[in-house]
Computed example of a mutant assay.
Amino acid sequence: MTQAWVDASSGASGDMLLGALVGAGVPVEVMQEAIDAVAPEPITLRVEEVRRGALAATRVHVDVAESHHHRTWRDVRAMLAGADLPLAVFERLAVAEGAVHGMPADDVHFHEVGALDAIADVVGVCAGFAHLGATGVTVSPVAVGSGTVQTAHGTLPVPPPAVAELLRGVPTYAGPAPMELCTPTGAALLTTLATAYGPQPAMTVDTIGVGAGGRDPEGHANVLRLFVGGFEAHSVRTSTTEGPLLLECNVDDLDPRVWPAVIAALLEVGASDAWLTPILMKKGRPAHTLSVLVDAARADDVRTTIFRQTSTIGLREQPLTKHALDREMVAVEVGGHPVAVKLARHHGVVVNAQPEYDDVARAASALQRPVADVLAEATSLARKFV
């Protein structure tokens, strides 16, 4: 099963990610074809081998004709209809820009993130990661830079407001140079693609791509590295009795349509799980109990999110003891598509083998088969590990 690790210790931009993908073996034709399918005007990718500091790197130039179109998120959404991953990236950009400028996301103009350049970066990078077929993308803490930057809105602090908004809840730090290191496009791509954040996970590295942007400052190699390989075959999480905190509150005056967004926000800031339980309160009022599991180190962020996102004015909190089985990730193939399988062991004996639903759904979509059929086949194949 393919795993990718993005080393963003010198920041991230769309062209750095394009270069890293080409360096890791993704044919530039794969990305060019995806761009040609949606681009409203001619866009050409051009590959150049460069040096950044002491490192050899790949730079992908995005050649476009001069364009005076400042497209809104509404325009881009119509242009990319059906391209789910690029749409998700642009939606993040639009929501972040709208939040910092105090305007509806649909009215945000993309001149600030490069217009045609941004379309090429986003569509090309998404096509490149799809070609890799990585089921997990781990992103290192992201270097954002420091100092100030000149924009269409004047001089802004680094990280610029849109980048800071996009990287809420993501591990970040200033990094090696007093300059803008992470662009809005880079931040939106990383946060959309990432399935986890942290140092390089246990993996057997097969290829390494080193991507360069246009800047070559003195003092550090301004590159983004992409490691691609397989999951470590016997990478196991040890069982533990150390437990999380349980935070709970009863809420009877929140529009129920808001709850999915609340739970998503809690998971984004570090909760390990969150769920709702319907209850009946005094005087017969229907309500919900919100329950959240979180490690003590992330509890303050979760408390803040609960108070900001719900109408509660108080929380109950208690430590829990947790017994977790040892876990191991393996994979099966259904119709040529990999499906991750989580094995759980008790005293070294496999007692559960469960296919990952997201992989099942992706395989079912690609194979044009019912999800239930693919799930049943993956479950049957997973039985060989028990």
Rank of each mutant, 00 (worst) to 15 (best):
Ser146Asn: 09
Phe90Asn: 07
Thr240Asn: 00
Ala134Pro: 08
Ala187Met: 04
Glu218Ser: 12
Glu218Val: 09
Pro217Thr: 08
Leu320Cys: 15
Gly82Ala: 11
Gly284Ala: 01
His347Cys: 11
Leu116Arg: 07
Val251Ser: 00
Leu45Ile: 08
Glu48Cys: 05
Gly214Trp: 04
Gly133Phe: 12
Glu242Ile: 02
Thr155Ile: 15
Ala196Gly: 14
Ala378Glu: 07
His70Thr: 09
Ser140Gly: 07
Leu55Lys: 12
His131Lys: 10
Asp107Ser: 14
Leu226His: 02
His111Trp: 12
Ala88Pro: 07
Ile119Cys: 06
Ala212Asp: 05
Gly175Trp: 01
Pro86Arg: 07
Glu333Lys: 11
Ala324His: 08
Ile119Arg: 02
Val371Gly: 03
Leu116Val: 13
His70Met: 04
Ala202Lys: 06
Ile208Lys: 03
Asp84Pro: 04
Thr312Gly: 12
Asp253Arg: 01
Gly19Ser: 06
Gly102Cys: 12
Thr304Asp: 14
Ser272Val: 08
Glu268Gln: 03
Val334Arg: 02
Leu267Cys: 01
Met203Asp: 04
Ala297His: 12
His153Met: 03
Asp84His: 12
Met79Ala: 09
Ile306His: 08
Asp15His: 07
Ala344Met: 13
Thr135Glu: 14
Gly128Phe: 06
Ala118Pro: 03
Ala81Pro: 00
Gln318Phe: 13
Pro159Asn: 03
Pro217Ile: 09
Gly284Val: 01
Ile306Gly: 04
Ala20Tyr: 05
Glu48Leu: 10
Leu280Pro: 00
Pro278Tyr: 01
Val142Phe: 01
Thr148Val: 14
Val28Thr: 13
Val137Glu: 02
Met31His: 04
Ser13Pro: 08
Thr138Lys: 03
Pro159Ile: 04
Cys182Trp: 03
Ala24Val: 08
Val210Gln: 04
Asp326Ser: 14
Leu132Pro: 10
Ala143Trp: 05
Val332Gly: 02
Tyr357His: 15
Val60Ile: 08
Ala143Met: 07
Gly23Asp: 02
Pro355Ala: 10
Glu33Leu: 01
Pro141Phe: 04
Val360Thr: 09
Arg52Ala: 12
Glu232Ser: 13
Met79Pro: 00
Pro201Val: 11
Ala331Thr: 15
Val89Tyr: 04
Thr238Leu: 08
Ile208Arg: 13
Arg92Pro: 10
Pro161Ser: 09
Gln318Ile: 12
Asp121Pro: 09
Ala287Cys: 02
Pro40Gln: 05
Arg46His: 11
Ala297Lys: 09
Leu55His: 07
Pro160Tyr: 00
Ala54Asp: 15
Asp300Arg: 14
Ser365Trp: 06
Asp84Ile: 05
Met329Arg: 06
Phe227Gln: 05
Gly98Met: 12
Leu55Ile: 13
Ala364Gly: 10
Pro244Phe: 00
Asp301Lys: 09
Pro217Val: 08
Ala212Pro: 03
Ala115Glu: 15
Gly136Phe: 00
Thr312Ser: 15
Ala376Ser: 13
Ala94Glu: 08
Glu180Gln: 14
Ala99Cys: 10
Ala296Trp: 03
Val64Leu: 11
Arg71Ser: 13
Ala363His: 08
Leu375Met: 15
Leu17Val: 05
Ser67Val: 10
